[in-house]
Design a protein around this nucleic acid. Structure first.
Lengths: 216, 216
DNA sequence: CAAAATTAATCAAACGATTGATTAATGTAA
DNA sequence: TTACATTAATCAATCGTTTGATTAATTTTG
């Protein structure tokens, strides 16, 4: 059945995503992935062509819907800059914490100083989400909602960097925060709400115009 | 001569540090490293025992002096919390931007969800720098210098996360910032001063007690 | 001092193991 | 039967490491 085949391919990608997050792309062997997925090694090449094909297939599964959600928030004309910022953060934090394996895998492979085809591809993907955020900030500054002296570009480093620190280096952030950031229950009950609140407070403290407290 | 031997070992570590940063630990082969260093492959094992020995030798070279500098700032009783924060940021940002290869290499190998001996070792190393920063914040809050409602732990994620974003994903941050963050000249003339100023402004906006503007 | 003995440094070649990928054979369902 | 799915076996390439031999440097000895 077509259904079963799709399920099986999806199962392989689920496992591969986790194994790539655990050991990195180079550190994860095709035998490791197929073994944990309970399928014959040759099936990876049969379905996805190659190891890199598996890697890219994981991408296709995740990026499109996510990017469209963020894009729709950025293009929403009915809300002001502060509300856009809130909605963006809510959606973004929910998604990246839940799909932490994917984002660990993604960011690890771009943490190389050498450019490759793969780093270029990942850069393009990541930059789409970055651009949406940048536009929200730039628009807010232009409208006078946000402090015009804000460093828009380094603010990008702060929001995505803070997220990366929590999600991509779980052993560090778990130690700092005092709980296991990889635990799904903890993520929903503790991490997400606290992270959202913090991020909004931080951005408001930095972006707020002086002598203008009515947005707090 | 002893001198020449140390120079040679140091040269190998210089090259290995760069190659590890370029391709990652698994992606960098011993042939690649020895080839670029212009030495016979067997010399890596002769000097450092193994590939992992090379990796760990790079650590020994970098961490000790750096940690002592930060530690002395944290223990300085003659300055207040705001000044400590400033000095910490100045030293930290200088060091991590200059030694970007090392920090790319370091952080990449801890960006795995699976625990290993190596991730545990790296976690311990990183946590030492984190603790110094945490103590500065905690002390400032206790003394009443900083806003007591600040989320100390997520603030850790922000400072180190922002730094990681700039240093460890250079292809992304170069695109966002509009210049090459790996260029040494750009680092000193543009990146470091701007990064320091931004980080201080951001932390002051977040940590400052309300109705207390005399620290700006 | 000079010859001999010892140690350290360097090399090309090969090691066994593992990698990603492919093959040819077999199983399965329409 | 025919087309697709799955398997075990196998492939060449590359991995980190080790080897035995050779050269260079140092120490010991007469």
């Amino acid at each position: 059945m077509e259904k079963d085949k799709t399920d099986k391919k999806d199962h392989i990608l689920d496992v591969a995503e986790r194994v790539f997050a655990e050991h990195g792309y180079d550190g994860a062997s095709t035998r490791m992935i197929s073994g944990e997925a309970g399928v014959n090694m040759a099936m990876l090449n049969y379905y996805f062509g190659s190891k890199e094909g598996v890697f890219l297939a994981i991408f296709d599964r995740r990026i499109t819907s996510f990017q469209n959600v963020l894009l729709s928030i950025g293009n929403d004309e009915s809300i002001n800059s502060w509300e856009k910022l809130d909605k963006y953060l809510d959606s973004y934090i929910d998604k990246v914490v839940t799909n932490n394996c994917f984002h660990i895998m993604l960011n690890r492979e771009i943490s190389k100083s050498k450019k490759t085809d793969l780093t270029d591809q990942i850069t393009d993907i990541i930059m789409k989400n970055v651009t949406v955020f940048q536009n929200i900030i730039a628009e807010g500054i232009k409208k006078g909602d946000f402090n015009k002296d804000a460093d828009q570009q380094l603010l990008v480093a702060t929001i995505f960097g803070t997220k990366n620190y929590i999600v991509n280096t779980p052993h560090i952030s778990s130690k700092v925060l005092g709980f296991d950031v990889l635990d799904a229950g903890v993520q929903n009950d503790l991490l997400k709400p606290r992270f959202k609140k913090y991020m909004k407070t931080l951005l408001k403290a930095y972006l707020q115009n002086e002598n203008d407290n009515n947005n707090l």
